[in-house]
Design a protein around this nucleic acid. Sequence first.
DNA 1: TTTGGCGTTAAAGCA
DNA 2: TGCTTTCCACGCCAAA
Length: 510
Amino acid sequence: MAPPKLTEYEKKRLENIRRNDQMMAALKIHSTVSQLSAATKRQKVGLSKSYKLSPEKKVAKSQSPIVIRRSLRTRGMPPDSGGLDYSVETPDRSPTRISKPRPSPRVMGPLSMRDAYSGTESDRALIDTILFLEKKPQVDVSIKKKFDRCEAVKMEQSDGISHDSVKGVVKDEYLDYGIKIDDKETESCVDVWSMGLKKENIARVLPGRIMAVRFLPCNDVRMIVAGNKFGNVAFWNMDSKGEEGDGIFLYRHHTGPISGILCQQSCLSKIYTSCYDGFLRLMNAEKEVFDLVYSGDDAIFSLSQRPNDMNGLYFGEGRGGGLNIWDERTGRFSSQWILHEDRINSIDFNSQNPNIMATSSTDGTACLWDLRSVNADKAKSLKILNHNRAVHSAYFSPSGSFLATTSADNTVGILGGVNFEDTSMIYHYNQTGRWLSPFRGIWGWDDSSIFIGNMKRGVDVISCSQRRSILTLQSSHMSAIPCRFDAHPCKVGMLAGATTGGQVYVWTSS
DNA sequence: TTTGGCGTTAAAGCA
DNA sequence: TGCTTTCCACGCCAAA
């Protein structure tokens, strides 16, 4: 077969890459000196822990040429063309990588964890820890209530009993939702006023902006997974002892911003990651690979999974508002819908009734859907919440009784009532600008509080019942604005906040 | 109606 | 300490 004909642009670009490679090789010594200097400066920030890149993979920002990225699609190339290595286009590239090339994260297949690993010390400790946890039965204590409800619904559904008879569900005209409001849910199980930030619970886990952060859902080890805009994913074992280094392990198995991280409580060794590069990968610690689950031409902006369907991956793809359901067993789409007019920023499911899905979009809306009645021809939502600007998140409360939305129009919306017909819009300044990831208000461990970033280097706590911000968590240790959060699924009061500088701050309650 | 450029914004890096 | 660079968010507005 004849080699593909290159366009003028592509020829020029390849030539640029070749020149850049030569230049970077020549600058090897210089860059090493500048990195050492940078490392020294990092100490000054006062972070007790920070990620360490292996010498051949340290960031050589000032020397690395930045090539403007164009998507494969806009270049008229298929995603598996293998023609151009994206890795040269990010600052996370070093001179010596040229002489010892590693597989590009864009490889169309499994990528070994060893090849994707960017650290100095062995990652054996991490893999062993995950495999150890995997074998240990995990008990979810803090959100037992949520899962009890979920299990109750599932149990009754499998018994063939209709939603109308599910225990505790209010019988009225809105029963299609299968969701009940319980005022007791608004009682708090955590004293947010006692939440504090300890110095040892701070680390710089990644270079660059953190796009997504997750706790590994287990009781025994406090493990954080974070993804940045360069396609790195870091693991931070907060319980790691000194002899194992800082407990931070850095990989790069994607080539663009990480848009989603999914950890499963039922199988801790498998962690899904989605990326703007259109790839969806699955870390398999047993096989020590990052498997390729899906690859498409368009960016993946959001990723989620239904609580009762571990084989289906729900992800928002492209700027056209597409939502795909990917069946991992068959390796095919179960469904492909256009649900919005612009990118889908978040996907979430109701714990009481996993058929109810919430999406938020840059088109300015958050929508509720009943998965049983969505069809490809005419996607009709159960409810549309209109914001005046882009909506960055729409998350159900742990009990499923409320929905919280965060929008660029400087509001946090709280929807409640039997049919989510009660809408409250709470003013919250959400203008993060270009360099910070947009804020997303997340629920804590019950229906009482929503946690969201504050431009004054704090974490605002919004009371659901009072429909207002009641507290801002602040600390002298916090030197940057936390944008993305995760509440530990098993440890009440443990909240991770991630910044644009790669730091993670973990708040705990006393 | 579509497209493209600009302004906004925080923080790391460097002189 | 202060300036420069970053540059995949997004609204706004003018030009095409």
